[in-house]
Design a protein around this nucleic acid. Structure first.
Ligand code: MN
Ligand code: MN
Ligand code: ZN
Ligand code: ZN
Lengths: 124, 124
DNA sequence: TTATTAATGCAATTAAGTTGCAATAATACG
DNA sequence: CGTATTATTGCAACTTAATTGCATTAATAA
């Protein structure tokens, strides 16, 4: 299944690169208003994930946010840091701070996801 | 708006107390199969939240889980600890470990939510 | 016992995301 | 370049978790 280079794909990739933060389908749709279908955005984003170009994270608002993979390994996406979601500008950013914890004895870890909501520097 | 004591309310409260963990509507529905409507469960649970008897937390599976308030203050629900969701038995439990972090300068905190998925002692 | 109105059941709606399918358009190949 | 192949798209329909509208039922206060 060879991927093709389409306008939709390019446009969404540019948005992700420009954003420098994780974007939701909703936000992307607002940016490309009328240019492409809602479903196309979802499909392009999910293909990015399949290809290991992005990963998606479910935020504490119940929506998925898509972020470019930078220091991610093939099947081990590195987002074991806190994610901050600004209630003002709705930006989602990866914080420096790593999430650390120790599980009770006998427990096995599969995944962790930590969200902080509040107001970013510009919105506070 | 004076609350009334109904069978549905009693039954759901008993389940929450017996569970000793946070329950989803889905799980409760399975337990009370056929006794009450799906919507009634949601409404009873949400009323508990309004009354400060429970709080609800959105898990990393996109579902709400309802937990009895123990050491919660009126409008400041204390769940600043890690929540563990077992992929085997689907139980959600509050871990001892507190979530700690420092926000970048100028940021304002509103809320945080940390989830760990994996397998509990019995399921591992 | 009766009146008041909170709580319920059922159908319909919302919100975020996915899926089916026919039409469109990248790209590989002669 | 022209054509064939099939990935991608658009649109409608569907899914899942949760909420809302509304007529009916039933707690409880009088
Ligand atoms: Mn990644
Ligand atoms: Mn609470
Ligand atoms: Zn902001
Ligand atoms: Zn378990």
């Amino acid at each position: 299944m060879n991927r093709r280079n389409t306008p939709a794909k390019k446009m969404i990739m540019e948005l992700l690169q420009a954003a420098n933060s994780a974007l939701s389908q909703e936000r992307i749709e607002a940016e490309v208003k009328g240019v492409m279908d809602r479903v196309t955005i979802y499909r392009v984003l999910n293909r990015f994930c399949e290809d290991g170009v992005t990963h998606k994270i479910l935020a504490d608002d119940g929506k998925f946010y898509f972020a470019l993979c930078h220091s991610c390994e093939e099947h081990n996406h590195a987002h074991d840091h806190f994610h901050f979601r600004c209630l003002g500008c709705e930006k989602v950013e990866c914080l420096q701070e790593q999430v650390t914890f120790t599980l009770p004895d006998g427990y096995r870890l599969q995944n962790s996801s930590s969200w902080i909501t509040g107001y970013c520097k510009s919105c506070a």
